[in-house]
């Protein structure tokens, strides 16, 4: 435990990444796969789960080895570990579904450079015991998956009238083609960020108003 920092409970550690430090909406990390593969809910969730797998596996290993990894070569070590899990997940996805593998394409291999993962290894797993690291990684992975799903869901609903491949509006639905094209990713991400920041700003606006009533807006 780091001195001077409030010790979080295990549950808080888990929830950290889901909401307060959400990798997509709060930290805005790992945008490359976020924008590229979120054309459908299925792709988004697959990518989220793959990233979660790598995240959990690598932080667990990093945390286990945290006391033996020399600081001079820690980044190299982390990258080797992360790359290992990316390779593993690459094989797993090929074994489970080639369709998903083709849809995600190079972005599976690119998980290795997803800054969420190296960030978690360096900032969290290298300083915390395995259980807490895994909890934190699970939360982050869940947050990432939720973020990707939020994008992929909206893009698939508007862009194809479907969700997870199931038609929602019948055959006459007019797809918004732009939503499955790259600009659509930016539009939807922008809209979600707007919503998130608006919610957060309402919260922070409301917070100081409590002690001094009647002076909400100065």
């Amino acid at each position: 435990m780091i001195p001077g920092q409030k010790q979080l409970s295990n549950l808080e550690e888990l929830l950290e990444g889901v909401w307060k430090q959400n990798p997509v909406f709060v930290m805005v990390l790992g945008m490359c796969p976020t924008l590229a593969v979120s054309v459908s809910a299925m792709n988004a969730v697959s990518m989220g789960l793959a990233t979660t797998f790598v995240l959990v596996g690598s932080t667990f290993l990093v945390s286990l080895l945290r006391n033996v990894i020399p600081k001079e070569v820690r980044i190299a070590t982390y990258i080797v570990i992360i790359a290992t899990f990316v390779t593993v997940v690459d094989y797993l996805i090929q074994a489970i579904s080639l369709a998903v593998y083709d849809a995600l394409g190079a972005f599976i291999q690119l998980i290795v450079v997803n800054c969420i993962i190296l960030g978690r290894a360096e900032a969290h797993a290298s300083k915390n015991p395995p259980l807490r690291s895994v909890l934190n990684a699970l939360g982050m992975g869940a947050g990432f998956t939720v973020g990707l799903f939020a994008l992929g869901g909206v893009r698939e609903i508007l862009g194809a009238g479907k969700l997870f491949g199931f038609s929602l509006f019948g055959p006459d639905f007019q797809p918004w083609v732009v939503m499955v094209l790259p600009p659509g990713g930016f539009f939807v991400l922008g809209a979600w960020l707007l919503l998130f920041n608006w919610l957060n700003s309402r919260k922070t606006d409301a917070a100081p108003a409590k002690p001094a009533e009647g002076h909400a807006h100065v």
């Binding site: 033996v68 990894i69 070569v73 190299a76 080797v80 570990i81």
Partner: peptide, 10 residues
């Protein structure tokens, strides 16, 4: 030694 260990595990 450490790098060797990590590489082996991986």
């Amino acid at each position: 030694r450490t790098l060797g260990l990590v590489a082996t595990v991986c």
